[in-house]
Design a protein around this nucleic acid. Structure first.
Lengths: 260, 260
DNA sequence: CCCTCCGTTGCGTATTACGGAACTGGATGT
DNA sequence: ACATCCAGTTCCGTAATACGCAACGGAGGG
């Protein structure tokens, strides 16, 4: 069977794996038809149809009318609630993001470290109507994001070594791919208490991040602002960092961590 | 195969259906072990193990350490983001809920009409530490909730007839099961601009809801406050309704709907 | 140290899901 | 108006696939 390269373990239940792939496709594309899904997964239309039908029966997928394209269904909210219930950053972080996004006019994100990547758990778009994409749930590389650098700089030497031993994949022309240089940057990040990311993830995209501290002074998350390079200039950084720090402290307090 | 009564169409992909059942179980219970999952689904331990393993590979399920119980994984945020991206009420409604919940000290919910039921899309718990359950993603009957009555009162005559023609299932001792009486209540709801729900969904649970208006003056959602009967007394209703109305207007504004 | 309980792995079977092709039913175009 | 096209569904035979069974490995408890 022509599986698209991801067949690692035979122990995977294929239809389930494919069903999740369908959901991921829909989450990425927004919406898609059966034929498109089938093509993307490399399966027959009939298989895709069955898969989608099953997901639809569980309200995880829905279509516009009777005969339209499919998209993620509202039944997914059940699970969204379950995960945000466990993860306080999502619930508590939402208002903090929104407030800061309003003040800065830029997109604000909260990210945590999750198995070697930076996972965005909460987001608020800036006032600028330029609809930045939705990063929630996205896993972004630690070496090519401002949040990632902050989280990595605070991580154990073990975790740092693990990442630095592997290849640093270039995401954009200015991504830092040299481990030695990255180590320098992490050093500075730890000293300064913030990290920037200038067109290292995407061309034209700048970002800054500061750490969020837990009850024991440990770094539990990062809060970042991102926007087009022309708006987030180097000159504006100090001002934004200060705003981020205020938000970070606010978040710590709301999480019930006593801040000094 | 001993399928637990839900076998409707043979056209369902069983393993996918079971996988979703696993996720729903985890969302409901918070966490569970393989044996528990297997027992709940009525499948063999090995089957449950494979299912969970597949979901885990996709980050939809995770376990505490190496050998603990399983719970919904952070990968679910990807989908949560996709659904909240489509549905502005979730993103925008969050802060509104939180603010009102803080002020009232009760649980606040936003619900929309979705294929004949009221679907809770956003929630904030009141200050009272009494952890009310998580309603996000829950589908609740239109005739036994305050939000449902508000949504139904504003629905087309067609939709109203469809519900009223079916049986009104009793959820609690005081649930309205008489279509004639329900029609009266809906009439009053439309006139008053709010609806209450006194122990009609659950014994000891009171709730009030007001409509949220879209740009054309149409009802697009309902915002409700719920709490124990002794706290949400009839006497306190007018005050709460007023607070809800303020929040509703706030929400409309934040959604970009021009309010008169 | 043994016993119990939980989760994983190997294996054989037949259930189950897959792919192919034909069918339906809108939409489009000539 | 008719023919064509494209998207999605249904039917069917096959064999790949996921299932259940039973034995194994590892923690935790007595």
């Amino acid at each position: 069977m022509s599986n698209n390269g991801e067949a690692r373990d035979t122990a995977l239940v294929q239809s389930v794996d494919r069903a999740v792939a369908v959901l991921e496709l829909l989450a990425r594309n927004g919406e898609a038809g059966i034929t498109e899904i089938a093509a993307e997964l490399g399966v027959h239309k009939s298989s895709a149809s069955r898969l989608v039908y099953t997901l639809q029966a569980r309200d995880l997928v829905e279509q516009d009318g009777e005969r339209g394209p499919f998209r993620i269904g509202l039944g997914m909210l059940r699970f969204a609630g379950a995960v945000t219930g466990q993860l306080d950053y999502v619930r508590v972080g939402g208002p903090v993001c929104t407030e800061l996004a309003d003040r800065l006019g830029e997109t604000v994100n909260i990210a945590i470290l999750d198995s070697g990547v930076a996972l965005n758990v909460s987001q608020a778009r800036g006032g600028s109507a330029v609809a930045a994409q939705n990063w929630v749930g996205q896993r972004t590389p630690l070496h090519a994001t401002s949040s990632g650098k902050v989280l990595l700089a605070a991580a154990s030497a073990d975790d740092q070594d693990r990442l630095l031993s592997g290849d640093l994949e270039p995401c954009a022309p200015r991504t830092i791919t040299d481990p030695v240089k990255l180590r320098c940057v992490l050093q500075r990040t730890a000293e300064d208490g913030f990290a920037t990311c200038m067109e290292e993830l995407e061309a034209g995209l700048h970002a800054v991040a500061v750490p969020v501290f837990g009850s024991h002074g440990d770094v539990v998350a990062a809060i970042s602002a991102a926007g087009p390079a022309y708006r987030l200039s180097q000159k504006r950084m100090p001002e934004i960092v200060e705003e981020l720090r205020v938000a970070s402290r606010d978040l710590s307090v709301r999480m019930g961590h006593s801040v000094l």
